[in-house]
Design a binder for these strands. Structure first.
Length: 476
DNA sequence: TGAAATGTTGGGGCG
DNA sequence: ACGCCCCAACATTTC
């Protein structure tokens, strides 16, 4: 009788380039792939609403792919440490394998599981697969983790021999039947009342197949990435982020697909640099586990944030009166995703013009983004707020009007998502409150009725943000 | 992966 | 022809 290995799946929902699965399948052993839905009460950073939608479809497809290979995906709920030990005992598995994570709670689980299994005489091992590099290997001359992106990425590229290369499709002998699997239907990951994800499937095909197709399609058009990625009306970004978060596509596959004689364009290089930002954020979270809940620059813990739930709600619903921001927030709400240029502007307006704590924005993005990722989301918000590693200086304030005019000059993006101001001419569409009365009348737009006045005038918000920074300095 | 304020330069209109 | 001014264009500094 052959040995059985459990493979604990989390953010690695794919069957290609999967070191843990490949190792488990070695030597003709039988593999039982498991996904444990964490139901511990009070556990932080469980998947938000949009992520649950993606998770459902990823697992559904992965389960079907495993069935095609003669196996079954085992679904259970509870505390993964407890549940996995139980499954290992039930099935007589000789070991549990997994892909190592960078999230602090997930790493805690790995440790706890390892010691619990050890006591039961069961083996365990964590594998690469989530990143390009092991965070413990990338260090500055002084041996400390990098805190600035550019030297970090230079160092990574200088050690490209250590970069993980993708492996092929896993051919594993899966256990034909598994004990007491729960079902996705039972889990109720999909929204019901209301079904706000109705529009999601028009924009996304979650899962490994959709991810690999998206990657191949992007690799072909990646030469336009460098120029085009800043313009939200264009389709030039990769839109790979949710696939990368759930591991439908591995970062090693994404890097490899955009490398090569014919593909080392400026676009490919700058796309890989963005993969570098993902890597940087993950390494930061690995080395600084408090990144999600504490300012990386401790002095910002004293920043005079305003409590303003009313304005927060206005921002969340895309009713700020800044068209580029509202367009982004509505795109997020309807599709589970926002163009990165617009994310920066929308986030900047929340923390600077509105002086609302970056954690409020982090929480909203966590719940509404299909690509919500603890490392990227935390590092991104801290970057915008000016309190992060290699952060934009606090005084670097985006002007939502100028950003709109610069990156959506023809207002194609804004008009798509904010139709109530679509009739305004280009000159005023990014700042409706500056339009003369006759222009407003001609466009059939009543400010304050059909579309709101801005929460705060851009220049007033900007000055208030700078004052707050000055205030912070006096508190040090 | 800012924007505004301030400084510098140089062409052209004009007396 | 010349100096003066205006101002656009660009560069630098400051927040």
């Amino acid at each position: 009788m052959s040995q059985t290995i459990l493979v604990w799946l989390r953010h690695d929902l794919r069957l290609s380039d999967h070191p843990a699965l490949t190792a488990a399948a070695g030597g003709g052993r039988t593999v039982i792939p498991c996904f444990i839905r964490n139901t511990q009460s009070g556990r932080k950073w469980l998947p938000g609403g949009a992520s649950r939608w993606w998770l459902h479809h990823s697992l559904d497809q992965l389960g079907a792919d495993i069935r095609k290979a003669g196996g079954q995906l085992l679904l259970r709920s509870g505390d993964p440490v407890v549940v996995l030990t139980e499954i290992a005992m039930e099935t007589g598995a000789s070991a549990v394998y997994w892909t190592r994570a960078v999230e602090p709670l997930d790493r805690q689980d790995e440790k706890a599981l390892q010691s619990r299994l050890e006591k039961a005489g069961i083996g365990s091992e964590g594998f690469d697969g989530h990143l390009l590099f092991d965070p413990r290997d990338i260090r500055s001359q002084s041996g400390t983790p990098f805190k600035v992106f550019t030297p970090f990425w230079k160092n990574c590229l200088a050690h490209s021999k250590k970069m993980r290369a993708p492996t092929g499709k896993v051919s594993a002998r899966f256990a034909a039947s598994v004990p007491d699997s729960e079902t996705l239907t039972q889990w109720g990951l999909l929204p019901t009342k209301p079904d706000w994800a109705g529009g999601f499937s028009k924009h996304w095909q979650p899962g490994e197949r959709g991810g690999q197709a998206a990657l191949m399609a992007f690799a072909k058009r990646s030469s336009g990435y460098d120029e085009g990625r800043n313009f939200p009306a264009q389709d030039d970004t990769s839109r790979l982020s949710p696939y990368l978060h759930f591991g439908n596509v591995s970062v090693a596959q994404a890097f490899a697909a955009t490398t090569g004689k014919t593909r080392s364009s400026a676009g490919a290089v700058s796309f890989q640099r963005e993969l570098g930002w993902r890597e940087f954020s993950a390494h930061l979270l690995f080395h600084f586990p408090r990144l999600p809940d504490k300012a990386f620059r401790p002095e910002f813990e004293k920043f005079p944030w305003r409590k303003d739930s009313k304005t927060l709600r206005i921002w969340q619903r895309g009713q700020t009166g800044f068209p580029i921001v509202d367009a982004g927030m509505r795109q997020l709400w309807h599709t589970g995703w926002m163009h990165n240029r617009v994310r920066m502007v929308a986030a900047s307006v929340l923390v600077k013009h509105f002086l609302i704590h970056w954690k409020e924005g982090q929480d909203w993005f966590w719940d509404t983004l299909v690509d919500a990722d603890l490392a990227n989301n935390s590092a991104g918000w801290q970057w915008v707020a000016g309190c992060g590693a290699d952060a934009a200086p606090y005084f670097r304030v985006f002007n939502p009007v100028l950003q709109g005019q610069k990156f959506d000059a023809k207002a194609v993006y804004v008009r798509r998502w904010v139709p109530e101001i679509a009739a305004l001419p280009d000159k005023y569409v990014h700042a409706p409150w500056t339009a003369p009365d006759d222009i407003l009348a001609k466009a059939g737009l009543r400010l304050g009725v059909d579309y709101p006045h801005p929460v705060v005038a851009p220049e007033v918000g900007r000055q208030r943000a700078l004052d707050a920074l000055a205030e912070l300095k006096t508190r040090l």
